[in-house]
């Protein structure tokens, strides 16, 4: 039977500038479609109910839990994931800082933390340490104990701000 409203429907997702046309059932979450249908497996799935933040992506530059949005709701929207952070071979300052400060161990939570921190600092480059800690409390990490994540994000905040000030 065709034309049922629960049947797969054609949607278009722009992920890091690449257009993906896919047919998905409405019940599929955005994170599943990003990973399984669009092949972008950098975004991770942890809890699948909004608690851990591993699935954080940016939709029209707003950070959100992609396990709590249906892919059909993102039709025509512009999505950014961890795969889009680097420019050519150059890592994003946030990625550099995570390496420098040893802000990951198993790395499972890392894509979510990177996208969360980048989104927050793109919107408000002046966030101080206390505000950043508050924002980072959104996501869970089972390995690092958070200290090095906080250090990395604070260092990247300074780097991103310096880049911003240097650009005309």
């Amino acid at each position: 039977m065709s034309g049922r409203t629960s049947d797969p429907r054609e949607i278009t997702l722009s992920i890091n500038g690449t257009v993906h046309k896919v047919a998905v059932e409405p019940r599929r979450t955005l994170v599943d479609v990003i990973r399984d249908d669009c092949g972008q497996t950098g975004t991770h799935i942890g809890c699948e109910h909004g608690v851990c933040g591993a699935c954080t992506v940016l939709v029209d530059d707003e950070p959100l839990r992609s396990c709590l949005m249906f892919a059909v709701q993102a039709d025509g929207r512009s999505i950014r994931t961890v795969e889009g952070l680097q420019t050519g071979d150059a890592l994003h300052p946030m990625q550099e800082a995570f390496m420098r400060y040893h802000a990951l161990q198993c790395g499972f939570c890392t894509p979510g933390f990177l996208m969360l921190a980048v989104a927050a600092l793109e919107k408000r480059p002046d966030l101080n340490r206390e505000e950043l800690v508050d924002i980072l409390s959104s996501n869970l990490c089972r390995c690092t104990g958070y200290e090095n994540i906080v250090k990395a994000v604070c260092a990247a905040a300074a780097d991103m701000k310096a880049n911003l000030d240097a650009s005309p």
Binding site: G53, R65, A120
Partner: peptide, 11 residues
């Protein structure tokens, strides 16, 4: 400020 977290408050 007390409601959930930033990426939940955006939705």
């Amino acid at each position: 400020q007390n409601i959930a977290h930033y990426p939940i408050r955006t939705r």
